[in-house]
Design a protein around this nucleic acid. Structure first.
Lengths: 353, 353
DNA sequence: GGATTGAATGGTCTCGTGGCCATCAGTGAA
DNA sequence: TTCACTGATGGCCACGAGACCATTCAATCC
């Protein structure tokens, strides 16, 4: 079991790869005719067609997509840039988009920017190197790649954005109705009697002008409530910062009676903090989480969540992409879909203190 | 906002795409020289090199990988076939493998077989259509694609298997030490005093000869324990069947005092069943789960798990792949890595009944 | 001083497919 | 009979980069 692996003898192997030329030779026709057996079979005599098909079957011929796309035409690959494939939102999005694109003959190439501008640029470069026909992008993480993206567009790469829409962008896009979702959460908590509500998000107006964080104070104000300044901390969107922020919020002299986690990842961090402090849901505090992640219905009590229509979002995004690639048309350039509030056990009226 | 999307005017756009020819023309050298500026810069006069680099920068030239790989050489893409990208094991595997391969200049194309033989064949075809240099495969789901896989190999596609190794396969492979992992779980429970232990797996000897299910009775026997026939039900590996099977096991006259879930997905189904029945862990029953999934440390009590070294597995698999593609060598064709038992709150001595 | 060497650069062909035009045989109408 | 037309098939070139060989020119050696 200690054999050395080395490069396979390419020549020997490649000899077994058959091309349309081989098919043509075996069938006794020209390459052009052989090709037509695949693309325009009705242009051939039934007899010729059968002969070519027989040759194709015998040689197990399968066209080389690289060569096909090289000659002027579009390539059959589409890139998908996600934040992290470990995140169920992105994984589900990738799966659904992949299905829709596969039905139209495209292959999805998934790449992660890992929430880093540098990585994003790197991944966009890689995708362009493969000459993808289009890119489905979750923008906003890598500010620096704006310029590069513009260049890609000018080179005929179709771009569709999802989940976030940067200001001044006019790419076709698919978005969640973030203000509406936040409103649902706040209204739900407000109706239960909560007044001191905090949202775990990022409030930085420039670096990451995240729609949900921006909407939260506005929605609160509309209900006659204010968000104390100490509830609005600028943080990143990951699990650890949500954990830390939750602890900080609960250490305040006037801690919130209800928490809204603006992403599924933050919900996980918040939940961990609550559990470690021995707080009981919903008695000691109420929690609403974005994203209907599997664990939210596994814990006790299950968490009240705002479910994003991930599959619908991916389907619409893929359709927008396909339209740009010349497959079908769509009427709406900018799609906005609503979230669904699923009431479970983590929300209840606040305890009387 | 109701503009119609259609195909971009390809000609206009393509005019903006620059090739090595354009670079050469702008720099006033031949295409060959221009190419050398990228591949063998030390072969050029500093003056010439600078001129070409200036042209490259000005035109934002980036090589077309398709064209490069078409000419005899290997392509720079590698396919990864996973069961489901929603499964954290696969997602983590994909991420790590992607990193390792990217460092060697390869792009990973992820595709899901969704545990279906038909889908797997379809995906393998698609990958071959793109002429990937190699395929990282979780085999065993699609029995039918064996033949196709052999054909791919004979066409020079490198194949590396992970997570499961079908009998009579000699592909380079990376496996978990499944018997050893099962032994760790059983030994742990045995030491706590458990005797009636059940494992959620699939015991079918032909359809899916899964190593873990096969190892379980053997490990039990080695400890002088037997597995009752009614504990060994043939099931699929998904969440719902694990849920149903758990309920069935607990309805038996002599229910197990400890459960081992042989996959992370089955653990989730089992946990759901236990919680719905109001059973308290670890008082009423003990639970050990394969895979250290995020939710297992989020629930109360956290679950005792067998952690797979996913990143190490992916790194080794990617290294095996790279070795076959001629990048570096490895000494071990078949890698087996051990699991780590993480004792948490879901296991304890059985209650005296 | 002519031959030799080697560095620097250029020319040409190839990969597998798609697009376009050419060819050829057969058919029907003027 | 001839011509226009159509259906079936073939020839040729382009796509963009890489491999390999050819060429040029200057420096060096005997």
């Amino acid at each position: 079991m200690t054999n050395r692996l080395s490069a396979p003898p390419a020549l020997t192997y490649n000899a077994a790869v058959s091309t349309i030329q081989d098919v043509a030779r075996l069938a006794g026709v020209s390459p052009t005719t052989a090709k037509r057996a695949l693309k325009e079979p009705d242009k051939l005599t039934p007899d010729t067609l059968a002969r070519v098909q027989q040759a194709i079957a015998q040689l197990h011929y399968e066209p080389d997509q690289r060569a096909g796309s090289l000659r002027g035409g579009q390539s059959t690959t589409v890139g998908l840039v996600v934040g992290s494939i470990l995140e169920p939102f992105f994984a589900q999005f990738a799966r659904t988009a992949s299905h829709v694109l596969a039905d139209a003959g495209y292959t999805l190439i998934i790449s992660e920017n890992e929430y880093s501008a540098q990585r994003e640029l790197q991944e966009l470069r890689r995708l362009y190197g493969l000459r993808v026909a289009g890119i489905l992008l979750r923008p906003g993480y890598g500010q620096d790649s704006q310029e590069y993206l513009a260049r890609l567009r000018s080179r005929g790469v179709a771009v569709t954005e999802y989940d976030y829409r940067p200001p001044h962008h006019d790419e076709p896009s698919v978005m969640l109705d973030n203000p509406g979702a936040v409103r649902q959460a706040v209204t739900h908590l407000h109706a239960l009697g909560h007044r001191r509500i905090a949202a775990l998000g990022t409030y930085h107006p420039v670096i990451h002008p995240e729609e949900r964080s921006r909407a939260f104070p506005e929605v609160m104000n509309a209900l006659g409530l204010t968000v104390p300044a100490e509830y609005q901390r600028v943080t990143l969107l990951n699990e650890d910062t949500a954990y830390a922020l939750t602890n900080d919020l609960l250490d305040l002299p006037e801690p919130p009676t209800a928490l809204i986690a603006l992403t599924g990842t933050q919900a996980s961090g918040a939940y961990r903090a609550l559990r470690e402090r021995g707080m009981r849901l919903p008695h000691d505090i109420s929690l609403v989480a974005f994203d209907n992640y599997p664990w939210t219905s596994l814990v006790d009590p299950p968490i009240t969540v705002l479910e994003q229509p991930v599959e619908a979002m991916a389907e619409r995004a893929a359709a927008l992409m396909l339209a740009q690639l010349g497959h079908g048309t769509v009427t709406q350039r900018h799609v906005v879909l609503g979230a669904r509030l699923i009431e479970r056990g983590s929300t209840a009226p606040p305890a009387r203190s």
